[in-house]
Simulated scan of single mutants.
Amino acid sequence: MNTNISCVALVTGGSRGIGQAISKRLAADGFAVVVNYAGNAAAAQQTVADIEAAGGRAMAIQGDVSQPEQVAELFAAAKRELGRIDVVVNSAGIMPMAPIAESGLADFDKVIATNLRGAFLVLGQAAAHVAEGGRIIALSTSVIAKSFPAYGPYIASKAGVEGLVRVLANELRGRGITVNAVAPGPVGTELFFKGKSQEQIDYMSKLAPLERLGTPEDIAGVVSFLAGPDGQWVNAQVLRANGGYA
């Protein structure tokens, strides 16, 4: 245990895309950051190296958020190495496109396992381990309001996450811990671009009044607000960071 660490943030899915931007922003804000990853060790180590090169502190810990034993060990390892956990951001997620039909069931099961079951497990461990006065933040999505075809499994998983956030905020009454969700609109990440045509990307880029895709850094800034001192009176909320998209 390193007793010189003052504040620690754990970011699931913290090695790529929005999660990576969150890891880097929280490190810049002064947190020692645990960068969780499922399988891409190289991306996680590069994220840690980037944080350290900028003067921050970070470490990478592998763990599949859909597996209870791995989630429990993720939190236990973070506390063994860094001594405490003050902020948890659940950013791990997948976004397969599938219709609401039997043919989409396999994708539905996958996205529910990672996005909703994973959130349930991560939020539960966060509730057990986050220090008094800490912050728990989950990633949802603003596409909930759009109901696009083929987004059914993804929207179902994230609607469930928003429900869990509000319930957990009430379950943690008296501990001074805030629990919120951030719901991005379309953000230019690998997860967003996968499986989309250029026509679809161009169309979605123009949906918000600001007429652009969000950036991972846009979302990281909102998470930074919730994790920082100015976010202390925001609780049980879903912040829709989407440029007016929905």
Rank of each mutant, 00 (worst) to 15 (best):
Q70W: 07
G118D: 05
V65G: 01
G176A: 14
R135G: 04
A246G: 15
L213Y: 01
T141V: 13
G14S: 04
M1W: 02
T12Y: 00
G17C: 12
A76G: 14
M1D: 09
N242M: 10
N115K: 05
L139V: 06
V130L: 03
F31Q: 11
A98R: 11
T141F: 08
E81I: 03
I201C: 12
D218H: 05
W233M: 15
S103E: 14
V87W: 07
R166V: 00
A72G: 13
S91F: 00
A145P: 04
S91V: 10
F75E: 14
L26G: 05
Q232C: 14
A181T: 09
P149Q: 01
A78F: 01
G93E: 07
P149Y: 04
I61M: 05
Q200H: 01
A44R: 08
R84W: 06
A106V: 04
D109H: 12
A156I: 00
G221S: 13
F120N: 10
H129L: 07
I201P: 09
G104E: 08
F31L: 13
A54N: 09
R240A: 11
R175A: 08
V33Y: 04
V11H: 14
A138I: 04
G221H: 10
E162Y: 00
A127C: 06
S157N: 09
S140F: 02
Q237I: 07
A77S: 11
Q198D: 14
Q45G: 03
A138Y: 09
V238F: 03
L239G: 08
S140C: 06
V223I: 12
V187D: 04
A241N: 08
P68M: 12
L74C: 09
E190A: 14
N4T: 15
P184M: 11
Q70T: 08
I144H: 02
A77C: 04
A106Y: 02
A98N: 13
M1N: 09
A128Q: 15
A127S: 11
G176E: 13
P149K: 02
E102Y: 03
V179R: 01
A159Q: 09
A156N: 01
Q198C: 02
I177A: 03
V222S: 01
P68R: 07
N115D: 15
G104R: 03
V223N: 04
V161R: 02
I61Q: 05
Q198V: 00
D202A: 15
G221F: 02
S147I: 00
K206I: 00
Q67T: 04
L105D: 12
V122R: 01
A128R: 15
S103G: 12
A220G: 09
L207T: 10
L123P: 03
F225I: 11
Q200C: 00
R240W: 10
Q62F: 03
R166Q: 08
D230L: 06
S91G: 12
M1H: 05
R135C: 07
K110T: 09
M204E: 15
G17K: 06
L139A: 10
A78N: 04
Y203M: 09
V179D: 01
K194E: 15
E199T: 14
A241S: 14
I136K: 12
G174R: 00
E52H: 02
P149N: 05
E217C: 08
Q45F: 02
V88Q: 08
H129K: 12
S142M: 13
S197I: 02
N242K: 07
Q62T: 11
S66V: 13
Y245I: 10
A54G: 06
N170V: 10
Q70S: 12
P184L: 09
A113R: 14
T141Y: 10
Q232H: 14
